[in-house]
């Protein structure tokens, strides 16, 4: 499958400051790609470069296999861009706002009318079509801004912090909307600080810091790559001491995983946390068999995956 976005050694400098250094990014068509990074990491610069609003200092950008020229005009047709701090024309009505952007893309009268109605329907603003934009809530304005990026039916959507400033309900609505757009075949690249949300919605993520891509790939692959070992949570019926002993004295030359650490949960003394150095599904199953055959009554046994926040914090700590 053709990549929707491909960058090769993409670099952007502002004077002596390098905002983005040799970024090699590949985003598959139809995926939702999440950019994670602290403030000033280079997320917005990357999105603005992809939208053709900035010129690369060096490197190359390809959108749907089409090389972006110096003027960046190809991006205007292929990309729908929603900036992090978006503005709205307060004195326009909701439908007029979309109608204006549809005119900017040269849609004729009939197409404009249909598109505006379809987009209002998509972002659930049909009942508010005649309201002034200034009277909409923040979440509604965010959806309207997203709709403006869709007026020309672009195959790629670039959304810079689309969920910032939204309440939980609005975030859920936005997430649903993004899923719908993905089902429509759009490739979506979004940046966010709300990492848990990215994990829920994104098919791929990239962690960027100080203008450099640290890791990129599917959410599971990134997690696996960063997490190294795995973490087990085991709940024991009865005393935990025999279980701790059984875990610490695993027979040598068995298929059992190497155990790095065993500790009792601080809030529940019947729960053990076990850190495994090199665990696979097979070795985890073997460990459970070992506990059961050692006469330990296990009521809960499951692998805990580290959340993205922890991974991100750990990673950026290491980088700094």
């Amino acid at each position: 499958m053709t990549n929707a976005i491909e960058t090769t050694n993409l670099t952007r400098r502002y004077g002596k400051t390098t905002a983005l250094a040799n970024l090699n990014l590949s985003v598959a068509q139809g995926s939702i790609y999440g950019f994670i990074g602290p403030n000033g990491a280079g997320k917005t610069t990357t999105l603005r470069l992809l939208a053709g609003l900035l010129e690369p200092s060096s490197g190359e950008i390809r959108l749907l296999n089409q090389k972006l020229s110096g003027s960046g005009t190809e991006a205007q047709r292929l990309v729908g861009y929603m900036p992090d701090f978006f503005g709205v024309y307060d004195d326009l009505r909701v439908w007029e706002y979309l109608d204006f952007f549809a005119r900017c893309y040269g849609l004729d009268h009939a197409r404009r009318r249909t598109t505006v109605e379809q987009l209002l329907d998509l972002v659930d603003l049909t009942p508010r079509r005649n309201d002034f934009v200034q009277n909409l809530s923040r979440g509604m304005q965010q959806r309207l801004c997203l709709a403006h990026a869709l007026v020309h039916d672009p195959p790629i959507l670039l959304l810079d912090e689309p969920a910032s400033g939204l309440d939980p309900r609005a975030r859920v609505e936005l997430r649903e909307l993004l899923r719908t757009l993905r089902e429509m075949g759009k490739t979506i690249v979004l940046s966010s600080h709300i990492l848990s949300e990215l994990a829920e919605i994104c098919t791929e993520i990239g962690i960027i810091d100080c203008g450099q891509m640290i890791v990129s790939g599917s959410v599971d692959a990134v997690r696996q790559q960063l997490q190294g070992g795995s973490h087990l949570r085991i709940r024991i019926l009865g005393a935990v001491e025999p279980a701790v002993e059984a875990l610490q004295n695993t027979p040598a030359a068995s298929r059992l995983p190497a155990i790095a650490e065993v500790r009792v949960d601080s809030s529940d003394e019947r729960v053990l946390h076990v850190e495994l150095a090199n665990a696979t599904e097979e070795t985890q199953a073997a460990l459970l068999t070992h506990l059961v055959t050692s006469g330990i009554l296990v009521s809960e046994y499951h692998a805990q995956t580290e959340n993205l926040e922890n991974l991100f914090l750990r990673l950026t700590e290491v980088m700094s």
Binding site: R48, A51, G52, L53, T73, A75, Q76, R77, V79, Y81, P83, F85, F86, G87, V88, Y89, F101, C104, Y105, G106, C145, H148
Partner: peptide
């Protein structure tokens, strides 16, 4: 004013 109300970049992203 387009720059101040953050709409200028949105305009530049269009073919206008």
């Amino acid at each position: 004013s387009e720059r101040e109300q953050l709409t200028y970049e949105m305009l530049l992203a269009t073919p206008l």
